[in-house]
Design a binder for these strands. Structure first.
Lengths: 219, 219
DNA sequence: GGGAGAATTTGCACACCGTGCAACAAGCCT
DNA sequence: AGGCTTGTTGCACGGTGTGCAAATTCTCCC
């Protein structure tokens, strides 16, 4: 299991414990979702498996579903972080595309397909996931505003970011449904789809006969 | 109050009662959200105000928030319906743009701004609204698939629809926040923003300095 | 090392949620 | 009318989410 934060920062016992607890809860929830299905378990079960009290669970998450969006949150957070480290003078779409495809390359991927499928089967989980993307959208808009500065209107920013995330979402969904229970080696498949959808976006969706996800989708 | 379905179909007492009840509940929920704020009332209160039992409420809606998304649902349903009546040979973006701006022209508009602001203040309501858009997205993808036929790939369809809805959403959000407590006369403002965002989409978001919306530019 | 003080966990209580179930009422059909 | 179908209601019950105060754990400084 790859950790997204390998920082060896001098964390106090307090900080470290909280991180561990949060992780334990999220992992417990994921385990349960895998074994008995999303929405088929209670908060008490998560808490018990994580080795904390029910009350503590609610100190960390607002609901059972929320504890299943941690991975989605960190994925998007990571993408944003990668984006922030791109050179300022790089063309916008170039930076966006690279950020996402780079992020997919360093993330545990099959998990996200799994989560997508879970969301399809459980409305409450789907809502939590949508909310997760929504929160990310707000953060990305902020980052983009800092990058582009004043000339970009609010409408432009929010529409653009919404579209980029919609494309990424569409790519992940398409990948999730057409790549049944794959191993971790299907990263290229996903990357290709993200690339393809973002290229469609850049080109204004001119061609309805665009290929689903070819290995090459040049600009 | 304009009804979106003025069909004088020969509905039986049964059907009519159900429609009335559903309406009564939705109206009661909206009233409450307006008077005490979203998320600050219980299902019992909604049921009482609607003149039905608590149990009956749950026969119609899964949660209090769901009863507040009825208007959003019907708005998107109406847009889809308008789209379905567009000529088949009309250019795609033309049809999409016209569908939405035509729909905004016939809908009680200030309400949607209100709902948007409510969603900002209440996470659960926001989730319900996001879910509403998500459901609409699925329906629209279906409609588009019928229109475009086989040549359109799944990824193309879902990405396109997601982007169109993201743009519409961005337009409504921008309009909602920059048009405080307006009357019903601000329809043009919204229409202009939808037009602007969908044009951005068609042009591939090339120009960061795009104007916010028509005659009056925001931020 | 130890104790004051801050942060975190936990148990408890309580109002509210969402649903299965069975009784009841209201529309429908001949 | 009288049976049939469909919708409403009350009830019960397990689960949810949160305020509160006591107990526990960590931090810091002497």
């Amino acid at each position: 299991m790859l950790s997204t934060t390998d920082n060896a920062e001098p964390l106090g016992r307090r900080e470290q414990n909280k991180i561990d607890t949060r992780r334990a809860i999220a992992d417990a929830a994921l385990d349960l979702a895998r074994s008995v299905g999303p929405g088929a378990f209670t908060v008490d079960q998560i808490a018990a498996r994580a080795g904390v009290s029910r009350r503590t669970f609610f100190n960390y998450f607002h609901s059972a579903e929320d504890s299943l969006t941690v991975r989605t949150d960190t994925f998007l957070e990571l993408a944003l972080e990668v984006f922030g480290q791109r050179p300022q003078d790089e063309p916008l779409f170039e930076a966006i595309i690279r950020s996402f495809s780079e992020t997919t390359r360093m993330e545990g991927l099959s998990l996200h397909g799994e989560l997508f499928r879970m969301g399809d089967a459980n409305p409450d989980l789907l809502r939590a996931q949508l909310h997760s993307w929504e929160r990310a959208e707000a953060r990305i808009v902020g980052a983009l505003r800092r990058r582009l500065g004043a000339p970009a209107s609010n409408l432009y920013l929010t529409a653009l970011v919404g579209c980029v995330l919609s494309c990424t979402k569409a790519a992940m969904r398409d990948w999730a449904v057409s790549t049944p229970e794959s191993g971790d080696d299907s990263g290229e498949q996903l990357e290709a789809r993200i690339l393809a959808s973002l290229n469609m976006l850049r080109d204004g969706f001119v061609d309805p006969t665009a290929t689903s996800a070819g290995p090459a989708a040049g600009s």
